[in-house]
Computed example of a mutant assay.
Amino acid sequence: MENMTMTSHVDTCFDCAKACEECATACIEAGDTDSKGHDMTACIKLCRDCADICTLCGRLTARGSQFMKSFMAVCAEACEACAAECEKHASHFAHCKACAEACRKCAEECRQMAA
């Protein structure tokens, strides 16, 4: 794997983790439900899981771990689940929209890199 591609992927993973952390924090600060009464618990949980998984994926990629490619598949799965949940709230929360976009980008890259 080309070094520049790996560096870019590491950045994508960490950018996604950051978006997930920001989304989870904003959801927690807003309370357990959004303005339309939707329960935000699933969003918070998925964002927290996704942030941890993306961080580990980025770290494994940065060190060229023998496990990075198989872990990228797990990362893509987590990102897709998080994006799907955040998209439910994207029309009324900018942080959910940003998180969904970062997760979709990371999932796509992980799938390409793992292939």
Rank of each mutant, 00 (worst) to 15 (best):
C43N: 01
I44V: 03
K45I: 09
K45R: 00
L46E: 04
C47D: 12
C47I: 07
R48N: 14
R48Y: 00
C50Y: 11
A51V: 14
A51N: 14
D52V: 13
D52N: 14
D52F: 07
C54W: 09
L56P: 06
L56M: 06
C57Y: 02
G58P: 08
G58Q: 02
G58I: 07
R59P: 07
L60A: 11
T61R: 13
A62N: 15
R63F: 02
R63S: 14
S65T: 10
S65R: 14
Q66Y: 09
Q66K: 14
M68W: 09
K69L: 05
K69A: 10
S70M: 13
S70W: 01
F71E: 08
F71N: 09
F71R: 10
F71T: 01
M72K: 07
V74P: 12
C75L: 13
C75A: 15
C75T: 15
C75H: 14
A76G: 13
E77S: 15
A78C: 07
A78W: 01
C79F: 00
C79R: 05
E80F: 06
E80A: 01
A81N: 15
A81Q: 10
A81I: 05
A83E: 09
A83P: 01
A83G: 04
E85V: 00
E85W: 03
C86I: 06
C86M: 05
C86S: 11
E87K: 01
E87R: 05
K88S: 03
K88E: 00
K88Y: 04
K88I: 02
H89Y: 00
H89N: 00
A90V: 03
A90N: 07
A90T: 05
A90M: 03
S91C: 08
H92V: 13
H92G: 13
F93K: 13
A94T: 15
A94F: 09
H95M: 13
C96E: 12
C96K: 11
C96Q: 11
K97F: 07
K97V: 04
A98M: 11
A98H: 08
A98I: 06
A100G: 07
A100L: 05
E101T: 03
C103W: 01
C103F: 04
